[in-house]
Amino acid sequence: MKIYTLKTKQYLPISIEKAWEFLSDPKNLKTITPEYMKFEVVSGADRKMYPGQIIQYIVTPIAGIKNKWVTEITHVKNKEYFVDEQRFGPYSLWHHKHFIKEIPGGVEMEDIIDYKIPLGILGQLIHPMIVKPRLKEVFEYRKKKLIELFGTIETKASNEIIFV
Protein backbone atom coordinates (compact mmCIF):
# COMPACT_ATOMS: atom_id res chain seq x y z
CA MET A 1 0.00 0.00 0.00
CA LYS A 2 1.63 3.20 -1.15
CA ILE A 3 0.63 6.54 0.34
CA TYR A 4 1.97 9.56 -1.49
CA THR A 5 2.56 13.01 -0.04
CA LEU A 6 2.50 16.30 -1.87
CA LYS A 7 3.84 19.43 -0.19
CA THR A 8 3.69 22.99 -1.44
CA LYS A 9 4.46 26.40 -0.04
CA GLN A 10 3.55 29.76 -1.44
CA TYR A 11 4.05 33.24 -0.09
CA LEU A 12 1.32 35.82 -0.55
CA PRO A 13 1.56 39.58 0.12
CA ILE A 14 -1.76 39.78 1.94
CA SER A 15 -2.94 39.93 5.53
CA ILE A 16 -3.73 36.72 7.38
CA GLU A 17 -7.38 37.83 7.54
CA LYS A 18 -7.57 38.23 3.77
CA ALA A 19 -5.74 34.94 3.19
CA TRP A 20 -8.08 33.06 5.50
CA GLU A 21 -11.18 34.66 4.01
CA PHE A 22 -10.12 33.68 0.50
CA LEU A 23 -8.65 30.23 1.12
CA SER A 24 -11.34 28.97 3.45
CA ASP A 25 -14.17 29.82 1.06
CA PRO A 26 -14.83 26.76 -1.16
CA LYS A 27 -16.44 29.03 -3.77
CA ASN A 28 -12.96 30.39 -4.56
CA LEU A 29 -11.69 26.94 -5.53
CA LYS A 30 -13.15 27.39 -9.00
CA THR A 31 -11.02 30.53 -9.54
CA ILE A 32 -7.78 28.71 -8.74
CA THR A 33 -8.53 25.44 -10.54
CA PRO A 34 -7.69 24.97 -14.26
CA GLU A 35 -10.67 25.72 -16.47
CA TYR A 36 -10.44 22.40 -18.31
CA MET A 37 -11.34 20.66 -15.03
CA LYS A 38 -14.77 22.33 -15.13
CA PHE A 39 -14.80 22.57 -11.36
CA GLU A 40 -18.23 23.14 -9.86
CA VAL A 41 -19.36 23.27 -6.28
CA VAL A 42 -22.66 21.39 -6.20
CA SER A 43 -23.57 21.90 -2.55
CA GLY A 44 -22.34 22.59 0.94
CA ALA A 45 -20.48 25.87 0.40
CA ASP A 46 -23.26 28.18 1.48
CA ARG A 47 -21.93 28.74 5.02
CA LYS A 48 -18.62 29.74 6.52
CA MET A 49 -16.27 26.80 6.98
CA TYR A 50 -16.91 24.55 10.01
CA PRO A 51 -15.81 21.08 11.13
CA GLY A 52 -18.21 18.50 9.77
CA GLN A 53 -19.08 20.53 6.67
CA ILE A 54 -19.73 18.30 3.67
CA ILE A 55 -18.99 19.86 0.29
CA GLN A 56 -19.88 18.25 -3.02
CA TYR A 57 -18.06 19.07 -6.25
CA ILE A 58 -18.02 17.95 -9.83
CA VAL A 59 -14.63 17.87 -11.54
CA THR A 60 -13.52 16.67 -14.94
CA PRO A 61 -9.82 15.93 -14.36
CA ILE A 62 -8.97 13.49 -17.16
CA ALA A 63 -10.34 12.78 -20.64
CA GLY A 64 -13.60 14.66 -20.09
CA ILE A 65 -14.76 12.12 -17.50
CA LYS A 66 -16.91 13.78 -14.85
CA ASN A 67 -16.13 12.86 -11.26
CA LYS A 68 -18.16 13.60 -8.22
CA TRP A 69 -16.11 14.50 -5.16
CA VAL A 70 -17.43 14.70 -1.65
CA THR A 71 -15.13 16.14 0.99
CA GLU A 72 -15.59 16.77 4.66
CA ILE A 73 -13.95 19.67 6.47
CA THR A 74 -12.73 17.82 9.52
CA HIS A 75 -10.66 20.41 11.37
CA VAL A 76 -10.76 24.20 11.41
CA LYS A 77 -8.64 26.58 13.45
CA ASN A 78 -9.44 30.15 12.54
CA LYS A 79 -6.59 31.84 10.61
CA GLU A 80 -4.26 28.87 11.22
CA TYR A 81 -5.36 25.72 9.41
CA PHE A 82 -8.15 23.56 8.10
CA VAL A 83 -8.26 19.98 6.88
CA ASP A 84 -10.39 18.47 4.16
CA GLU A 85 -10.80 14.74 3.67
CA GLN A 86 -12.37 12.96 0.75
CA ARG A 87 -15.46 11.01 1.68
CA PHE A 88 -16.32 9.96 -1.84
CA GLY A 89 -14.27 10.39 -5.00
CA PRO A 90 -11.46 9.12 -7.20
CA TYR A 91 -8.82 8.60 -4.50
CA SER A 92 -8.65 5.82 -1.91
CA LEU A 93 -7.36 8.44 0.50
CA TRP A 94 -7.24 12.24 0.24
CA HIS A 95 -6.23 14.12 3.35
CA HIS A 96 -5.41 17.76 2.68
CA LYS A 97 -4.01 20.06 5.37
CA HIS A 98 -4.03 23.80 4.62
CA PHE A 99 -1.85 25.91 6.90
CA ILE A 100 -1.34 29.66 6.91
CA LYS A 101 0.92 31.77 9.06
CA GLU A 102 2.03 35.38 9.14
CA ILE A 103 5.47 36.26 7.83
CA PRO A 104 7.07 39.66 7.12
CA GLY A 105 5.19 41.08 4.14
CA GLY A 106 2.28 38.66 4.20
CA VAL A 107 1.51 35.01 4.75
CA GLU A 108 3.06 31.63 4.14
CA MET A 109 0.53 29.20 2.76
CA GLU A 110 1.46 25.56 3.14
CA ASP A 111 -0.42 22.56 1.80
CA ILE A 112 0.30 18.98 2.76
CA ILE A 113 -1.68 16.28 1.02
CA ASP A 114 -1.50 12.59 1.83
CA TYR A 115 -3.22 10.56 -0.83
CA LYS A 116 -3.56 7.04 -2.10
CA ILE A 117 -4.82 5.92 -5.46
CA PRO A 118 -6.99 2.86 -6.07
CA LEU A 119 -6.31 -0.18 -8.26
CA GLY A 120 -3.34 -1.53 -6.29
CA ILE A 121 -0.23 -2.16 -8.38
CA LEU A 122 -1.94 -0.76 -11.49
CA GLY A 123 -2.62 2.45 -9.57
CA GLN A 124 1.03 2.68 -8.57
CA LEU A 125 2.02 2.24 -12.20
CA ILE A 126 -0.23 5.02 -13.45
CA HIS A 127 0.73 7.41 -10.65
CA PRO A 128 3.94 8.75 -12.25
CA MET A 129 2.35 8.88 -15.71
CA ILE A 130 -1.04 10.44 -15.01
CA VAL A 131 -1.81 11.35 -11.41
CA LYS A 132 1.44 13.02 -10.35
CA PRO A 133 1.82 15.20 -13.48
CA ARG A 134 -1.84 16.22 -13.29
CA LEU A 135 -1.60 17.18 -9.62
CA LYS A 136 1.58 19.12 -10.35
CA GLU A 137 -0.21 20.95 -13.15
CA VAL A 138 -3.19 21.77 -10.90
CA PHE A 139 -0.95 23.18 -8.16
CA GLU A 140 1.22 25.11 -10.65
CA TYR A 141 -1.96 26.67 -12.03
CA ARG A 142 -3.14 27.55 -8.55
CA LYS A 143 0.20 29.18 -7.78
CA LYS A 144 0.03 31.26 -10.97
CA LYS A 145 -3.56 32.36 -10.31
CA LEU A 146 -2.79 33.35 -6.72
CA ILE A 147 0.15 35.45 -7.95
CA GLU A 148 -2.19 37.10 -10.46
CA LEU A 149 -4.73 37.78 -7.74
CA PHE A 150 -2.48 38.91 -4.94
CA GLY A 151 1.18 39.07 -6.02
CA THR A 152 4.08 37.29 -4.37
CA ILE A 153 6.74 37.57 -1.70
CA GLU A 154 10.40 36.91 -2.26
CA THR A 155 11.74 34.42 0.28
CA LYS A 156 14.76 32.19 0.60
CA ALA A 157 12.48 29.22 1.17
CA SER A 158 11.57 26.88 -1.66
CA ASN A 159 8.42 27.55 -3.68
CA GLU A 160 8.49 24.11 -5.24
CA ILE A 161 5.83 21.45 -5.33
CA ILE A 162 7.38 18.42 -3.67
CA PHE A 163 6.17 14.85 -3.97
CA VAL A 164 7.40 12.42 -1.32
Binding site: P13, G105, G106, I147, E148, G151, T152, I153, E154
Partner: peptide
Amino acid sequence: EQPLYGKSFAF
Protein backbone atom coordinates in the same frame (compact mmCIF):
# COMPACT_ATOMS: atom_id res chain seq x y z
CA GLU B 1 5.03 43.28 -15.08
CA GLN B 2 5.16 40.90 -12.11
CA PRO B 3 7.30 38.17 -13.76
CA LEU B 4 9.85 40.84 -14.77
CA TYR B 5 10.42 41.81 -11.15
CA GLY B 6 12.02 38.99 -9.18
CA LYS B 7 11.15 40.22 -5.70
CA SER B 8 8.05 40.75 -3.57
CA PHE B 9 5.25 42.19 -5.67
CA ALA B 10 1.72 43.07 -4.65
CA PHE B 11 -1.42 44.75 -5.99
